[in-house]
Design a protein around this nucleic acid. Structure first.
Length: 594
RNA sequence: GGUCCGGUAGCUCAGCUGGAUAGAGCAUCAGAUUUCUAAUCUGACGGUCAUAGGUUCGAAUCCUAUCCGGAUCACCA
């Protein structure tokens, strides 16, 4: 039971005894006591004044007195204005810690039985992943972990956009200019290789367009005459007609890209339970549109295209089927949503997609509701903001993309450089050194991105992210490694770290560490509710920082009182456990030594 | 123009189911080391929580309006 719940019940019965009335849940406000006041938890008594009909101070004092006499766990209380600060006994805190230590799965919930599906990553197969994808992947994976730890059954899916005119562009350019180049023959990573031809196409297109314009033809007219574009359109038609040669090329080049993506996913430590391919789902949803047409939810325009009118909902009209009866993006999303709900019987569907698609998901939910699906409300768009660079925005069309693989590489090598400089790698062998540098470099990147509220546009400064001080992944990793080192040394000295302790002589720093451990379950629950890895990230930092201060102040191994020493070791071990658990939720590994 | 999102210290960000004197880190300055791992710790400096109203015992937090920034409003995905 959480302390808040315990206090809430205690206050209720105290109020009942004192004033003969029941207090409603929303009248009981309990929070952690601010640092500048003496106490552990605080009851805000303002809402109870209506019941007590006394001044804030008098009410607080009366309730405090009553609580103290009823509960041995309460050591003291003080009332300041309308705030009743409660202080618990040392025994109480030790007991809380012991309960947490004994419970292997402390903080993790089991079997609320909600079935969730989360879709993230969703790459295009015509170019490599970039910084924006990194935020997407890290968010999706972390949120999936958090939801799972909160007791849900989570299915992670990836919907790969493997078809369309953009893919044909890479294919055509490769055909025309590639000379049969392959990842094997060139030594290039598959997705990068294909991405190069996508760029090559664009270059050729611009060249041809300029040539036509130079002959004096109007720009708009010229655009429809570019030879290479006509060829691409022809290729797309062939693809849709299942032309064997084109299909074979498509399969070959896509497989290169998948090899490349898998390496990047592997580096980032993300994974999926199921991968969907758009080439297999893009025809879905048409039947839903026909159904809606029959119900009169949609309408057909003179040219044959099908639309939905959302003007009464404050939005515009939205196209659902083209005049040639082919489906568009939203048509297929309607279809895949329905298919997934039917196939997996999911309670909630989460889409990790950039905030430039907020409108799309708003429309998607509306349409599904209009079609009469109750589950439309269970769709959640986990929207995230763009990642900007100090020099400007990073959008592919502006040509300043930061390639995911390059960035990962840079993070690892910077981690290595800095670690070497600090002499942190001296005691490690080559394999360990490699492992630690990877962990630190990637930890820096992941933590930097995940600590920010997803909704917000964030600034990614490579220099700052690789700073090993302050609120960073490496700082937290370091704290963990240092605790582990102390524990290791203790074991060498043959101190046995106890599973429980009767130590009653604890200090304020220790109480605040226990408090932090104690709120882990609530923190996790709230992070799950908000789909917010940043909550967990900041928790990990808080506890690491608190521990560092503690560590600095008390010499654990030199402590002469054996009982206190063992207690401190036990506490340290639990703190390390909390750090590791939190970081694991974020998909960040922590080293035992560095 | 419509819709959505954001605006908190010089910079990067927490805090937002309304609670006490708004918090961290970076940067700057001043300190701490016979290390249990200094990738650390202590202190100082730094704020009209975009602006103006409103709601109430109390507002960074809720409501309204305005300003600034971003996204979006394709027979693209």
């Amino acid at each position: 039971m959480t302390i808040e719940k315990f206090m809430s019940a205690a206050v209720k019965s105290a109020v009942k005894q004192l004033y003969g009335m029941d207090a409603a849940d929303e009248q009981i406000q309990i929070q952690l006591t601010n640092k500048e006041f003496a106490g552990d938890y605080t009851l805000v008594v303002f809402p109870l004044l209506k019941i007590s009909r006394k001044s804030p101070e008098a009410t607080a004092n009366e309730i405090g007195e009553r609580l103290k006499s009823l509960h041995a766990e309460i050591k003291s209380y003080n009332a300041i204005k309308g705030f009743l600060n409660i202080k618990f006994t040392a025994e109480f805190w030790v007991q809380r810690l012991n309960a947490a230590v004994k419970n292997e799965n402390f903080g993790l919930s089991h079997g609320k039985g909600k079935k969730l599906m989360i879709e993230y990553s969703s790459p295009n197969t015509n170019k490599p992943l970039h910084l924006g994808h990194i935020r997407n992947n890290l968010l999706g994976y972390a949120v999936a972990n958090i939801l799972e730890a909160d007791g849900n059954d989570v299915v992670k899916v990836n919907l790969v956009n493997d078809r369309g005119v953009h893919i044909c562009k890479s294919m055509l350019a490769w055909q025309k200019f590639g000379n049969g180049e392959t990842p094997e023959s060139s030594g290039k990573k598959g997705d990068h290789l294909v991405g190069e031809y996508y760029v090559r196409y664009d270059k050729e297109y611009k060249k041809q367009l300029a040539e036509i314009i130079a002959t004096g033809i109007d720009e708009n007219e010229a655009k429809s005459k570019v030879q290479i574009q006509l060829e691409v359109q022809e290729m797309l038609r062939k693809w849709e007609a299942q032309n064997p040669e084109i299909i074979a090329l498509w399969k070959k080049m896509n497989s290169w890209v998948y090899d490349g993506f898998n390496k990047t996913y592997n580096d980032l430590g993300v994974s999926f339970d199921k991968i969907y391919y758009e080439s297999q789902t893009y025809l879905l949803g048409k039947s839903l549109v026909y159904e809606g047409l029959k119900k009169g939810v949609f309408f057909r325009k003179d040219d044959g295209s099908v639309w939905v009118d959302l003007t009464t909902d404050g939005l515009d009209q939205k196209l659902l089927l083209r005049s040639d009866d082919t489906s568009v993006y939203i048509t297929q999303d309607l279809g895949t949503a329905q298919q997934r709900v039917a196939e997996y019987n999911i309670d909630q569907m989460i889409y990790v997609v950039g905030n430039e698609q907020n409108y799309h998901f708003q429309v998607l939910k509306l349409i599904l509701k209009k079609l009469g699906f109750d589950w439309a409300n269970s769709i959640h768009h986990l929207s995230y903001g763009m990642v900007e660079l100090p020099e400007g925005k990073m959008k592919s069309r502006e040509g300043t993309v930061v390639d995911a693989d390059d960035l990962i590489e840079e993070m690892i090598s910077t981690a290595q450089k800095m670690s070497k400089q600090l002499g942190k790698l001296d005691k490690l062998n080559a394999e360990e050194e490699n492992r630690v540098c990877r962990m630190v470099g990637l930890g820096a990147l992941k933590y930097f991105i995940l600590k920010v509220d997803p909704q917000k546009t964030m600034l990614f400064d490579p220099k700052e992210s690789i700073d090993f001080n302050g609120n960073t992944g490496p700082f937290i990793q370091y704290t963990h490694a240092r605790i582990k080192s102390v524990l290791h040394k203790a074991n060498e000295l043959q101190a046995q770290i106890p599973q429980t302790s009767a130590c009653a002589d604890i200090n304020e720093k220790e109480i605040s560490l226990i408090k932090l451990i104690d709120i882990f379950p609530e923190t996790l629950a709230s992070a799950a509710k908000e789909f917010s890895p940043s909550t967990i990230a900041n928790y990990a930092y808080d506890i690491a920082k608190e521990y560092n201060q503690y560590y600095h102040e008390y010499q654990i191994l030199r402590e002469e009182n054996e009982e206190i020493k063992l207690f401190r070791l036990m506490l340290s071990q639990k703190v390390a456990d909390m750090i590791k658990k939190s970081m694991k939720l974020l998909g960040i590994d922590v080293p035992d030594r560095m």
